[in-house]
Design a protein around this nucleic acid. Sequence first.
DNA 1: AAAAAAT
Length: 512
Amino acid sequence: MQDTPQAIPEIPAPPSAPLRFDAVGLDAKLVRAVHDQGYSTMTPIQAAALPVVLAGRDMMGAAQTGTGKTAAFSLPLLQRMLRHETSSASPARHPVRALILTPTRELADQVAQNVAAYARHTQLRSLVVYGGIDMKPQAMALRQGVEIVIATPGRLLDHLQARNCSLAQVEFVVLDEADRMLDIGFLPDLQRILSHLPKQRQTLLFSATFSGDIKKLAQSYLQSPQVIEVARPNATATKVTQRFIKVDEDFKHAALVQMVRDENLTQAIVFVNSKLGAARLARALERDGLVTAALHGDKSQDERTKALDAFKRGEVHLLVATDVAARGLDVADLPAVFNYDVPFHAEDYVHRIGRTGRAGAEGLAVTLVSVRDERLIGDLEKLLKKPVEWAPFEVRGLPRHRPAFEATARPRRDDSAAPPRRHDAPGAAARSEAPAWRPRPAPSDPFFDQPYREPERSEPAAWERTVDPKAALAQAAQLRNRLSPNIRTRRKLPALFVAPAPEMASDAPATV
DNA sequence: AAAAAAT
């Protein structure tokens, strides 16, 4: 492993005029496919990654979400594969030559669709492989022979064990959302997969976030990699308006509904931290006249697919999801994201809010912070390298519903001894003038006491290339605003109607 | 603390 790789290919400086796909030596078949998708000029990450991948270099690419990472690796990868394109029908002539791994099934599907679109005019075949669905069709397709496999780790290992495919001929590996793929939960599977691959190969890592630790770990899987960072690493998209509001845990539901109404939102993803929480919240929100769907790992794959498709078609107002939906998912024109819970890992915040404000569009990200979420805010500020700005917010009236679990909650063992819980009687709470959000004495609270300190940022190494973030964003915005690939016409939603609860008739804020 | 990914 070397620290200072030689023979660094020339990377184009941030182009003053956007670089066109037909002006960078890509095969005409690929250019045609790109044009079919409605693209003509490259985003900065695409312009930067292309020559590196074409030169056969390993690379680590960090770029904001929604800036075209998938095309950034698939196009040059396809280009390289085309040099040895074969049209033989024999499976032996169609070994798996490229492997793309993703952390969720939905993302695998999405990447596969993009790859297939870019490869449509070539002889190269691609296949997506993941769990939760019948293995047989996948096995048959693998045995027929495919050059490109897009997969989640578990099912791929299954196929390897069943000898449905060999990875001995793989020339290219891509880890999408690489930092997630390298985290402790995925690492064992990943290592087993990588052990099937030849040492001699090209490895590409992509993500919007790379923590320092992961960067170090990643080095051991890469050979003298080129690191490409477009915009500040770990940065959140600047087109997304971020709003943090303080709200009592019991009033989050009401706050969410109120904001959806006030902002006239047609759609939003609502992120929660647990699968059970997602299911409960989705159900509870239905009672407010909102069409919701839950998306989490306890659902069957069929349900997951249906939920996401319905949301993408615009038939669902609110998609209540766990972090299964945090990364990579491209929902066209999504106006807003809510963090009903503050994510456990700060990077996930970046990924979550990256679902909105994509392709240069405006987006709104609202994070609901209760007392129990507060300690996570510190981590977030460290990652964002600035203190969060609290937006003023008041819940008008009172929550219409008790938390869903109230109805079925079993009495606690020592229920008689326990002090009455406030959410047992939300109405009573207000009548007795209990505050919805209890402002705590800020000066004495250690959370607010800590002076904000700018985290140290090491200078990027000489071989790191940083593209001007402003130019990058402007370019991406301009590009994707004009062209809208893969955007299906959205069915018109019925006008958003949230039945006002009797308690909400009053505009008097519940806050004291 | 949680979620994801194989069944």
